[in-house]
Design a protein around this nucleic acid. Structure first.
Length: 482
RNA sequence: CGGGGUGUAGCGCAGUUUGGUAGCGCAUCUGGUUUGGGACCAGAGGGCCGCGGGUUCAAAUCCUGCCACCCCGACCA
């Protein structure tokens, strides 16, 4: 493929090296994932975009249920008095809450907030329900949307309403709650790697970055093509902060009244933005095979020639019967060349081209979206071959993303080196840190870079904090973030 | 919320400086020929020029207020 041809085909998508933000917007618009709605910051998710969310949902929902969780639904509206019960929580969320003040034309006695997250309303109900340790744990999850009034919005990455799941559990002991917190974080890591083909850095948030009201927040962080980090899922150990504020008690094994230990965990449609920015290229989307709504597209060549349509229909049936999400595009309005470009833009992992010559030779042409390679496959055992190839594509994409991330991950030992790296070649900086909030705030104010997490896998890079010179406590991953 | 940019046909844009019949490409419709990397020919339809005021014989164009979206900051998932 020559540069000239490539330029012609993708002329509507800005090149990511020219303007990454514009590239992102172009890809989303051209591939019909979303549309802007009449209300600022609220987006319409169109079928191809929603199918990506459904892929994430079905993966996670299965894992949640395998680990004993049940789905529930709590109301959209939360009375102001409930939101106000946990001090740190309300301070954290108040600036971005939307309020309902009227029912019909009547002003409400107490205004209601549209949930920005559901800890408060769920805890108010847990308080009503819980009586004995024998009922514990409560392992509930809900799929819903939440509203946080954002000032600057971008499709998927930051919208005023977004779809997510939020798990809310309470446990008899602190140990169980901590176990749960990490169990769910691990499910997120598994989802990211096995479904989205995105490698994650996992760890704990600094106090400054943790969830409003949490004892500890754990996070998975991914690195985008442009060197900025995306928080992709969080799991909070809320200890007894909310259970005490909401007076959730149970009679324990010794007969004493006790407060349960609480967790919450969530991930959102933001993940779709991550998939786009980790795997996408200048031709558009590159979807990981296990997530792709269409895994294989069959493009017949010279389909009016005798036998071609029968042949591709048989191939389609065979792949479909094998559980592959396959589409046969036998429309006559567009040329094969148009179809090639269209499905590449939409990120379909594998394209099969079948024409009279292939049929004669018992083969088919296969084009991989991730590498743009074309190979000849035997027509016999098509389903098995295609399945194996899709799996290969998944692991190749994961590995490619890992290499790309590692190339943009730097050990920094001085503030000067840190600043240079973050400006010239943005990415993850691995550095020692004193553990003090003031030091972190100062680095953020000066450079815009924040501590993304204190990773579980610690390395000793030195004894002093390169930012303030005090003794170092942890190694941290730092980056500019979405 | 600060700085910058853009609103004209379904989409992408020109026209605005210097006011004078609303344009181009793609898409759409009709007919025909085509199909291994965005096919071709001929014809056709499609507009409150973001919204509201104002100036003028006359406004997409000048003045003014507002709104929306995009980008960069600050704030946040």
């Amino acid at each position: 493929m020559s540069n000239k041809q490539e330029k012609d085909f993708v002329k509507d998508i800005t090149k990511m090296e020219d303007d990454f933000a514009q590239w992102y917007t172009d890809v989303i618009k051209k591939t019909d994932l979303v549309d802007y709605s009449p209300v600022k910051g609220f987006m319409v998710i169109k079928p191809y975009g929603y199918a990506l969310w459904e892929g994430i949902q079905s993966f996670l929902d299965k894992r949640f249920k395998e680990t004993g969780h049940q789905n529930v639904y709590f109301p959209l509206l939360i009375p102001e008095s409930l939101l106000n019960k946990e001090k740190e929580h309300v301070e954290g969320f108040a600036p971005e809450v939307a309020w309902v003040t009227h029912g019909g034309s009547e002003e409400l006695a107490e205004r209601l907030c549209v949930r920005p997250t559901s800890e408060t309303i769920i805890c108010s109900m847990y308080s009503k329900w819980l009586t004995t340790y024998r009922e514990l744990p409560y392992l509930y999850n809900q799929w819903c949307s939440v509203v946080r009034w954002e000032k600057a919005t971008r499709p998927f990455l930051r919208t005023s309403e977004f779809l997510w799941q939020e798990g809310h559990t309470i446990h008899e002991t602190a140990e169980e709650a901590q176990e749960e917190t990490l169990r769910m974080l691990n499910i997120y890591i598994e989802m990211a790697e096995e479904l989205l083909a995105i490698p994650m850095v996992a760890g704990r948030k600094s106090d400054r970055e943790k969830f409003a009201g949490a004892e500890a927040t754990y996070t998975i962080e991914a690195l985008m093509h442009d060197g900025k980090a995306l928080q992709s899922g969080t799991s909070h150990n809320l200890a007894q902060h909310f259970t005490k504020a909401f007076d959730i008690t149970f009679q324990g094994r010794t007969g004493e009244l006790e407060y349960p230990h609480h967790t919450s965990w969530g991930c959102s449609t933001r993940l779709i933005g991550g998939v786009i920015m980790v795997h996408g290229d200048n031709r558009g989307l590159v979807l990981p095979p296990r997530l792709a709504p269409i895994q294989v597209v069959i493009v017949p060549i010279a389909q009016k020639k005798e036998g071609v349509l029968e042949h591709v229909n048989a191939l389609y049936d065979e792949l479909k019967a094998a559980g592959i999400r396959v589409k046969l595009d036998d429309s006559t309005e567009n040329s094969p060349g148009w179809k090639f470009n269209e499905y590449e833009m939409k990120g379909v992992p594998l394209r099969l081209e079948v024409g009279p010559r292939d049929i004669e030779n018992g083969v088919m042409m296969a084009a991989r979206r991730d590498t743009l390679e074309k190979v000849t496959l035997e027509r016999a055992d098509a389903a098995q071959t295609v399945k194996a190839l899709l799996d290969t594509i998944h692991y190749d994409m994961l590995e490619k993303a890992r290499i790309s991330r590692d190339e943009k991950t730097y050990v920094v030992k001085s503030y000067e080196e840190f600043k240079t790296k973050m400006v010239e070649t943005p990415g993850f900086a691995k550095a020692m840190w004193c553990g003090e909030e003031a030091c972190e705030a100062e680095v953020k104010a000066e450079t815009g870079v924040t501590i993304r997490c204190i990773p579980f896998e610690q390395e000793n890079l030195g004894d002093t904090c390169p930012f303030c010179g005090k003794p170092a406590k942890h190694m941290v991953y730092m980056a500019k973030a979405y």
